[in-house]
Simulated assay, not measured.
Amino acid sequence: MNAQQVLVLPGWQGSGEAHWQTRWERLHGYQRVEQHDWMHPLRGDWSARLEETVVDAPAPVILVAHSLGCILTAWWAAHSGHASGKVQGALLVAPGDVERPELTGPLRGWTPISMRSLPFPSILVGSRNDPYCSFERARALADAWGSRFVDLGARGHINAESGLGDWPEGHALLDSLRTTTKD
């Protein structure tokens, strides 16, 4: 699969230089879906940008989402006519639970979370001590979205602070997703 066909969807505030998503972009040439405002995300704007990027990308694409990027993926997939035809699969890592009281203020407009089954294969990776999404909630999102659930253990928000480096285990999950979704 060409590197341009893997689209990286960072979460709120983007993914910094030490984040595994940014490292994957450098190592593998994956394309980040750039958002207009990483600090004050608007669901409609982010969804429109994802729609535009998917439509313009060579098909099929694979999405690699982290945190709010996971919530974006589910919302966009529930409302886009291109999700089932253009997306081959998605790796969803550490979804941020925007329905938690402490997140509804800074992420106003991101509720409700879409609980519809995704129209493409997906893997959701959750952590047992994620400060932005309980383990039980991550498992429930995986069930609702029809995602295979992977328990990463106690790895926080599965971000730069988790000490994952290039996170080869995560990339192996992406590779397994690519393998299972081939024609």
Score class of each variant (00 low, 15 high):
G105Q: 10
W76N: 04
D45E: 15
V125C: 08
G14R: 13
V61T: 11
R116F: 02
R148C: 09
G146Q: 07
A74E: 08
L92P: 08
P95I: 02
A140M: 12
W38T: 06
R137K: 15
R108P: 00
L92N: 03
D97L: 12
G89L: 05
S15V: 07
H40C: 03
L63F: 11
P101N: 08
G81T: 15
L91C: 05
H40L: 08
V87G: 08
R49Y: 05
M115N: 06
V125L: 06
A140I: 05
S122Q: 06
L103E: 00
W24Q: 11
P112F: 02
Q35R: 03
A59I: 07
V55T: 15
W20C: 01
W12E: 11
W38A: 10
H19W: 07
H82L: 11
R32Y: 01
S84N: 14
S134G: 15
V93K: 08
A18C: 03
P41T: 09
P60L: 12
A74W: 09
S80P: 09
H28I: 01
W38D: 11
Y132D: 01
R148Q: 15
A65V: 02
D37P: 06
W75I: 00
G146I: 06
Q31V: 15
H19L: 04
I71G: 01
P101W: 05
W75E: 07
T111D: 04
W24F: 10
A142I: 12
P121A: 04
A142S: 15
C133G: 05
E17D: 15
G126K: 09
L68E: 04
A78K: 05
D143N: 13
E136R: 14
V61L: 10
R32W: 01
R32E: 00
A90P: 07
E52D: 09
V54T: 13
H40T: 08
G96S: 14
W12I: 12
L92W: 03
L68N: 02
P106Q: 08
D143Q: 15
L92H: 07
R128A: 05
R26L: 13
T73E: 00
L92R: 02
G85E: 13
P60Y: 13
P119T: 01
G85K: 10
M39R: 15
G126I: 03
A138D: 01
A140S: 15
K86V: 02
E102M: 13
S80K: 11
L42Y: 01
R100W: 06
S117L: 04
G81Q: 14
D37M: 03
V125H: 04
R100Q: 15
E34G: 00
R43C: 14
S147Y: 04
H19F: 05
R148G: 11
P131I: 04
D143G: 13
R43G: 01
A78T: 06
R128K: 12
A18L: 13
E17V: 14
W20G: 00
G85A: 12
A77Q: 09
F120T: 01
E52S: 13
E51K: 02
S47H: 10
L9A: 09
V93A: 07
A144W: 07
R128G: 12
H19V: 02
V125N: 06
L42P: 00
P112H: 04
V87K: 09
W110I: 07
T53M: 10
P121W: 00
P119H: 03
F120R: 02
G11M: 06
V93C: 11
G81N: 12
A65D: 01
L7K: 10
R137V: 14
W145G: 06
A144M: 10
W24V: 11
D143P: 00
A57D: 07
G85Q: 12
G89I: 08
